[in-house]
């Protein structure tokens, strides 16, 4: 039996909106530590790993594991019926075939209830090995999103080079090429604009910008983003949540 309450429906609404474009049917595994979702996009280029810890909920109970098999777009559609500041409760009996969502306004004189039909989804799970990343960059999520959007005007691919001088994003296409370089910096006024680079060795990887723009939709969830890269391996891109994270594993492009 799962019963989880959020003080503001917006906390879940914006997470689901951020990941819905990449995912379809997926299983949300619920247990006493919280809700977890791991799902590949249909092209197997990006793996989304979401964790919502139980302490992020105002009330949380899940005495036995519950798997919520659903289409993420259906969940997004139902969540659209909730006001951002509604109190949201998720409820599902063990082995139930429905997820009950209730939305209450703070004065509790309006309560909506939606029952989302659940499905049996036999989803493949990928084992993500612990990886020592050569480079870790913590930067403003909005600045990353903006930098990549600018370069997507030039090309469908971006090359990211990280060395001790900083991090360079570059793209080259028919109309020309462009690049943006950030030096490591500490911004005392607002820390989120700092660029923090931890490097064991320089690394350069290229990625598809369409998928990257889907990933950076999560910029609304966290003021900073952590990019982790190592030669020849998928990048790990993480947006921290108050009690959990939205993490993406992103396969690179290589020179043919």
């Amino acid at each position: 039996m799962l019963e989880a309450k959020l003080d503001a429906a917006s906390q879940l609404k914006k997470i689901v909106e951020a990941i819905r474009d990449m995912l379809g049917e997926c299983n949300i595994e619920c247990n006493e530590t919280g809700l977890a979702l791991q799902s590949l996009d249909k092209s197997h280029i990006v793996l989304v790993s979401l964790l919502l810890g139980s302490d992020g909920f105002s009330e949380y109970r899940c005495d036995r594991g519950v798997t919520l098999g659903l289409n993420i777009n259906s969940l997004a559609t139902v969540l659209r019926c909730a006001n951002n500041d509604d109190i949201l409760t998720l409820r599902s009996e063990d082995r139930a075939n429905e997820l009950i969502l209730t939305f209450e306004d703070s004065k509790a004189d309006r309560i909506s209830e939606f029952n989302l039909r659940l499905m049996d989804i036999d989803q493949e799970y990928l084992a993500i090995p612990e990886t020592e990343y050569a480079a870790t960059v913590v930067m403003s999520a909005a600045v990353l999103q903006r930098t990549l959007r600018d370069l997507s005007a030039l090309s469908e691919a971006v090359t990211i080079e990280i060395d001790k001088e900083g991090i360079r994003f570059s793209a080259e296409g028919d109309l020309g090429k462009g690049s943006t370089h950030f030096k490591p910096c500490v911004d005392m006024e607002n820390a989120e604009n700092s660029i923090n680079i931890t490097l064991s060795e320089p690394v350069s990887l290229s990625f598809n910008l369409q998928y990257f723009s889907n990933i950076t939709k999560a910029s609304s969830l966290s003021s900073t983003v952590t990019l982790q890269m190592t030669a020849g391996m998928p990048a790990q891109i993480e947006y921290k949540l108050p009690s959990g994270h939205v993490r993406y594993y992103f396969a690179p492009k290589i020179e043919d």
Partner: peptide, 14 residues
């Protein structure tokens, strides 16, 4: 030309 890799060539499905 560049080739897009798939995660399947990095991560094993459990």
């Amino acid at each position: 030309a560049t080739k897009q890799l798939s995660l399947d060539s990095f991560y094993k499905s459990t």
